[in-house]
Design a protein around this nucleic acid. Sequence first.
DNA 1: ACAAATACTATACATTGTCTAGCGGAAAAA
DNA 2: TTTTTCCGCTAGACAATGTATAGTATTTGT
Lengths: 104, 104
Amino acid sequence: MDTVKSSVGCVKTATEIIGDKWTPQLLRFFMNEDTVRFCQLQNLVGGVNPRTLSARLVHLEEQDIITKTNSLNSRCDYQLTKKGRDLMPVLRSMQAWSDQYASK
Amino acid sequence: MDTVKSSVGCVKTATEIIGDKWTPQLLRFFMNEDTVRFCQLQNLVGGVNPRTLSARLVHLEEQDIITKTNSLNSRCDYQLTKKGRDLMPVLRSMQAWSDQYASK
DNA sequence: ACAAATACTATACATTGTCTAGCGGAAAAA
DNA sequence: TTTTTCCGCTAGACAATGTATAGTATTTGT
C-alpha cells in the first residue's frame, strides 16, 4: 500500500463548521452585514427552519465564530469574531468556485 | 460599506459538494495523490463507512468532480477533473484556517 | 386594545448517516 | 487446484440529524 503521510494540513476543523448544512450560506451574510439578526437570516436564507437556525447559531457561538449580544428590546445581534472573520477567505473561495460552475 | 455587494456570489453550488460529510476530507487526498482507490480512502479517512463513501464518490462523479476508471484487475482509480482541481483553493483555505484554529 | 414582528421552542415526522455483515471477482498462497 | 485474502462495493437494521408546522413570550406600532 501507499504510505501517504498527511501529517500537515488537515481540513477537519473547518469542516466541523463549514460542513454543517446552511452554515456557509449563513456566514455569507456576515460578509456584507456587520451585525445580523435571527429573522434576517431566516428571511434571506430561504427555507432554514428556525430550529436548525437556532442550533447553527448556538454552535457558531460555542466555537467562538460569532457573538450574540442582546439589544435592548429583546432583540439579538450576531456578529463575527476574529476567528469568524478569518473564515471569510474560505467563503470567498467557495463563492468563486460557485460563480464559475453554478449549475443554474 | 464598499467592496462586494451581495447580489454577486452565492456559495450554494460549492456547499452542495463541500457540505457533504466526509467529502472535504476525501477531496484532500486528491490534492496529494494523482489517482486514489476506494480502500485507500477508507483506510486513510478514518471511519467512513463504505456505504457513505460509495454515495460520496457517486455524487462527485455525477457532479463531474472526479472520474472513475476501471483498472485491469477489477480495481478502480478515481481522479480529479478540472472542475475538481478548481476546488483545491477551497480546500487549501480550509486547511489554512484549520491549521490556525485546530482545537486539538 | 389589538395586530404584527422578533427570537425563539416543541412535537411529530422524514431524511441521512452509521454499524455490521456479506457478496462476487481477481490474485496470491497453500 | 483449492483456499485465503484483498478489493470495491451492497444490504438491512438502527441512530442521529434535519424539516414542517405550530406555538410561546416579549415588544412595538396603530
